[in-house]
């Protein structure tokens, strides 16, 4: 659609982004260099304070694990969704789409109900006499990783599905005709041909994971604090707005950098399944 008024159609979105994100973020940037005193002191603290550094490290570690698990799980689901038998495809589609209709909060509490020391799993195992003490399944990193992975799998599915749909069936047939067996075709031909989807899914999930708040807060029990929660604590609990703002700015810059890298490596359209 080429029309003089076409840019106007984008205006509502641009106004929303500008009003709701850009302007407030400029405010946050100002806090980071003015509170409590003008200067870059908060940024220096950010890279020297052992607590802040440990949260950064933990966040990256958890995000890396979550990303790896989500992408592997999504790859498996995608193979079934895109290339499986018709009945399996419907089941896979159901498993991918249903989580989208359930709120993040509901799903986090769902995991609490399953994993807590009085949760379903521990109760069942104790009732069955398999364990005496409840297993430490919640209020720890394990629970955070499980909850986040569960939430992020569908986001990894779309770029992967798009890449898998683009694989030319004849190329796989050719590999068979040349004497390759299934495992060989999968690892030497299929996986490399979906590389763009793997990169896209990995970066997308990592970026999402970095900003996670609700799931770590509920399933981590305050012991596995991640970056977003640290910002929350600095703003709302200990009045340390300057540090909270500085962490936010670093997080946004980091995510922005990762997204820029992502769009250099893959076309944005590949990430949402458009071709």
């Amino acid at each position: 659609m080429r029309h003089a008024a076409a840019p106007l159609l984008l205006a509502p979105l641009l106004l929303l982004l500008g009003g709701a994100y850009v302007v407030p973020f400029l405010g946050v940037m100002r806090w980071s260099v003015t509170l409590p005193v003008p200067g870059f002191g908060q940024y220096v603290r950010l890279f020297t304070d052992p607590l802040v550094l440990s949260v950064f490290l933990r966040s990256f570690r958890i995000c890396a694990i979550v990303t790896t698990l989500s992408v592997i799980a999504a790859y498996a689901i995608c193979c079934i969704w895109v290339r499986g038998a018709p009945a399996l495809r419907i089941i896979a589609e159901f498993c991918i789409l249903v989580p989208f209709w359930i709120s993040l909060l509901t799903r986090a509490f769902g995991w609490v109900a399953l994993l807590s020391s009085r949760g379903l799993i521990n109760t069942w195992l104790q009732a069955a006499g398999l364990i005496d003490e409840p297993l430490p399944l919640s209020q720890n990193e394990f629970a955070v990783i499980l909850g986040m992975t569960h939430f992020l799998i569908p986001f990894a599915v779309f770029p992967l599905a798009s890449a898998m749909r683009a694989v030319d069936e004849r190329v796989l047939l050719a590999a068979r005709g040349l004497g390759a067996r299934r495992a060989r075709i999968f690892w030497s031909v299929f996986v490399p041909m979906t590389r763009a989807g793997l990169i896209g899914a990995t970066m997308l999930v990592f970026v999402f994971a970095l900003g996670f708040f609700v799931t770590p807060a509920i399933l981590g029990g305050g012991r596995s604090i991640m970056l977003a929660e640290l910002v929350y604590v600095r703003i709302f609990q200990s009045p340390d707005w300057g540090l909270g703002a500085a962490i936010s700015v670093v997080l946004v810059v980091l995510v922005g950098g990762l997204l820029a890298l992502l769009f250099r490596l893959v076309r944005p359209a590949q990430l949402v399944g458009a071709r």
Partner: peptide
């Protein structure tokens, strides 16, 4: 097919990209 030892040239070549 993989056990037949026949070469095959496809329409559109089907090279490994």
């Amino acid at each position: 097919a993989e056990a037949r030892d026949f070469g095959m040239v496809f329409q559109g070549y089907a090279l490994f990209p």
